[in-house]
Design a binder for these strands. Structure first.
Length: 751
RNA sequence: GGGCCCGUAGUCUAGGGGUAUGACGCCGCCCUUACAAGGCGGAGGUCCGGGGUUCGAAUCCCCGCGGGCCCACCA
């Protein structure tokens, strides 16, 4: 019967039941809840295989492992989808309907992804799946909001904030990406008051001229020293503004003179604050300009219009085409504007040092990503804006009394929707107004571990504190260190005073075989379903285990995957070979058999170390070499004739070694391992732990290497002499291999 | 501008002071009763370049060159 992954894996899935593992220690894996999408990136899907190696590996080390299944759902992506593909723009239908629609689509995607997770043969707790957009989960988010509100860590304030004109909501720094774009650098002449002189500034934002409140030049810039603290006149608007020396002006860029507007970028914000200038709000919440001559235009349109106007005034000195990086919203790639808005903030500045201290107590795998987190923490300059003007997210659980001004926060632990839920002021009995805004989705995702501790302490019947004091592990990609990891550390610390994780394991990204990112644009996207269908999960997973070095990007090369399928076939055939013999025991092991048994014990001892250090690729590679190059090619060949004569020792060794192999293999390729172990040993190999065998006989391992060398030598000799491998040969057996004499004579037909 | 990572056969990779791992591909021989999805053998490399440390460098240090990532206010 040939190897048929489909049949085996189907059998596996049908018999699957979640198993925590047996042991005193508990490891909680804070599985990333993926954001649902109609197409799942192969790299994202495979990252769950790495988590499964950790889960299965640690169960084999004697841990109870919590490996939950969860999905995200809150936030802007689904709303973007609705707008783009369902042609339902935000605000075009009733809020209730809109939310229902989002949920429906998300759920249908989640079913597909759930199937992929199961097809990957993950040892996940599929029975207790959670969604961050479930009422139960959102209730917890709201409860934590109320807690922090009561502690005074949340406040509302009007500050300039990153605003996405497309999504019509404020966003946090962590949600911003930078894109290199071509733009015009416009050189504009400003007249100096009471003089015929003028000063030229270079700007990429001429449309903001109406909000220009100052010009800065570098204090040491000789060209402009004569203008320090003089007054310049803004063209078109004829407003008088000061020319101020400030070290933020770079003499080497443009003309060295910079116009400061409310707000072109965060430098402007900083300087307005420092110089206590009065900001002018000239962009509205639709991203449109509000003053002439650009009233009603978008910033892009306004830019062109303003250039025309300034040209007619004769104040444009020149225009250069430059490339520079502009901040865009990571979800929709729209250029962000900085607009003063009234939003809720969660205090994070006072926690910077404490979070940095916590990060030093966390073990990062690999270590270098700790710096990545620390760099981000260092770069934080404002508190976290957490309110969003969207619909599909967790509602801010607040009501306002129009009469007495009382603000009610829901802290009953239930899920609330203030935009439709009526509330009467407990102080003056007036009907209150519900908050319509929602929370940044990271407010939900940053408490996954907090949620899981609560949930699994109930399932396992352990108190929360006790569960938290075990081991927590966060697996995730490096691209969300500044968001998911950082926000989780912050939130969990604010809620519990503890570090969220003992371990952070960073996975790399899956690239195509040439090392390029996969994207629709290049046409190099591989879907998980395709590979699963073609090679099966056991093969895909084993390939992945061999391929990845934790924290490094890896390339997906189908030829290699196909190569690993041959390995599965090899394992299958070894089982086939062994199964022709009846299991038997012996007290008298022959040297060749003792050698191979020592070898596999040595490997299993090493496996324990490898798993502790998250070095799955090393284990997978060594197991591969052992099974194929040592066990199959040398050991089985050496003992074939002896086994055929029903030699107890040989048959015992075959069974013994292969069981240890299946035990290790079941971490990576659980389908085939479980199937074969059931067949040959009638055991559930998934539930077997790894065994530490103590000292092994290194002298035998050494002799074994010599044995392999000798076999290769004889085979080479026969080949070079044009003999067949079974032809007789006359050759002296080296002294150190004397103990293997019986098997060597049979294998090589030595006369 | 700051920080981090990576350059090893046609392709991809392991190793991180002492004759350079392995996979895929390529070439030759072999259907040897577990396996042709196999076995045996073979060709293929100034380990990016240049200096230094050393008896000895792919490996450690410095300087380049090339690629990638993260952060930062270049208007």
């Amino acid at each position: 019967m040939p190897y048929n992954p489909k049949e085996i894996e189907q059998w596996y899935k049908e018999n699957y039941k979640y198993f925590f593992g047996e042991g005193d220690k508990i490891l909680i894996i804070d599985t990333p809840p993926p954001y649902p999408a109609p197409l799942w990136h192969i790299g994202a899907a495979l990252s769950y295989a790495l988590q499964d190696f950790i889960a299965r590996g640690f169960r084999k080390l004697g841990y109870k492992v919590i490996f939950p299944e969860g999905f995200d759902g809150n936030g802007i992506p689904i709303e973007m989808y609705l707008e783009k593909y369902e042609k339902i723009p935000f605000g075009s239908i009733d809020r209730e309907e809109y939310i229902k629609k989002c949920r429906q689509i998300l759920d249908s995607w989640r079913e597909k992804m759930d199937k992929i997770l199961k097809d990957l043969l993950l040892s996940m707790d599929f029975e207790h799946r959670y969604n961050t957009d479930d009422p139960e989960y959102r209730a917890l988010t709201q409860k934590t909001f109320a807690e922090l509100w009561e502690k005074g860590l949340i406040y509302e304030a009007e500050y300039p904030i990153n605003y996405c004109p497309h999504c019509k909501t404020a966003i946090a720094d962590a949600e911003i990406e930078r894109k290199i774009k071509k733009t015009k650098l416009v050189y504009i002449k400003f007249k100096i008051k009471d003089s015929d002189d003028y000063i030229t500034v270079a700007t990429t934002r001429p449309e903001l001229l109406g909000a220009c409140k100052a010009i800065i030049v570098h204090p040491d810039d000789e060209r402009y020293k004569k203008y320090h603290n003089k007054i310049a006149i803004v063209p078109y608007y004829n407003r008088e503004i000061p020319i101020i020396p400030h070290k933020m002006a770079d003499p080497n860029f443009g003309t060295g003179a910079v116009m400061i507007c409310s707000y072109g970028d965060w430098v402007d914000v900083q300087i307005f604050r420092e110089l206590q200038l009065k900001p002018e709000k000239i962009i509205d919440e639709n991203g449109r300009l509000t003053i002439e001559p650009v009233k009603g235009l978008t910033t892009k349109e306004g830019r062109e219009k303003m250039i025309e106007v300034l040209k007619q005034l004769g104040v444009v000195e020149k225009i250069e085409e430059i490339e520079h990086s502009v901040p865009v919203h990571e979800r929709c790639e729209t250029e962000i504007e900085i607009i003063p808005m009234k939003e809720f903030y969660l205090k994070q500045l006072p926690f910077k040092e404490e979070i940095k201290k916590l990060s030093k107590e966390i073990e990062f795998i690999p270590e270098r990503y700790r710096k990545n987190l620390e760099n981000w923490i260092d770069s934080i300059t404002i508190d976290w804006p957490i309110s969003r003007r969207r619909w599909y997210a967790t509602e801010i659980p607040l009501w306002y009394c129009p009469k007495c001004g009382y603000i009610h926060v829901a802290k009953d632990g239930k899920y609330h929707q203030p935009w439709k839920e009526e509330m009467v002021c407990p102080r003056c009995n007036t009907k209150m107004v519900g908050e319509t805004r929602v929370l940044d989705t990271w407010m939900d995702s940053s408490i996954t571990i907090y949620y899981l501790i609560k949930k699994y302490s109930k399932i396992l019947g352990i108190d929360e504190e006790g569960l938290f004091n075990n081991y927590t592990l966060r697996p995730q990609g490096y691209e969300i260190i500044r968001t998911w990891l950082y926000y989780t550390l912050l939130r969990v610390y604010q809620l519990t005073g503890k570090k969220a994780f003992d371990f952070v394991v960073i996975n790399g990204m899956g690239l195509d075989k040439h090392g390029r990112k996969m994207s629709k644009r290049y046409g190099n996207v591989i879907e998980p379903e395709t590979l699963l269908e073609k090679y099966g999960a056991d093969t895909l997973r084993y390939w992945f285990a061999m391929e990845i070095s934790i924290g490094e990007d890896y390339r997906i090369n189908e030829q290699k995957i196909a190569g690993i399928m041959k390995f599965m076939n090899k394992v299958w055939n070894i089982a086939n070979y062994i199964s022709q013999y009846q299991y038997r025991e012996t007290q008298n092991l022959k040297p060749t058999d003792e050698w191979i048994i020592n070898y596999v014990k040595y490997l299993e001892n090493k496996a324990i170390e490898y798993i502790r250090n998250f070095e799955f690729n090393k284990l997978a590679r060594e197991l591969y070499r052992f099974v194929w190059d040592v066990f199959a090619n040398h050991y089985i060949e050496l003992t074939k004739k002896r086994a055929k004569n029903n030699d107890d020792s040989a048959i015992y060794a075959l069974y013994f070694v292969f069981e240890r192999v299946l035990n290790m293999l079941s971490i990576f390729s659980p389908g085939i391992a479980k199937y074969l172990a059931k067949k040959l040993y009638n055991k559930d190999i998934e539930k077997e732990k790894l065994k530490y065998w103590g000292k092994v006989r290194l002298d035998l391992l050494y002799k074994g290497e010599k044995l392999i060398e000798f076999n290769n030598y004889v085979w080479k000799l026969k080949t070079s002499q044009g003999k067949k491998l079974k032809d007789p040969i006359s050759i002296e057996i080296p002294k150190e291999l004397e103990i293997f004499k019986e098997d060597l004579i049979l294998l090589h037909n030595i006369q």
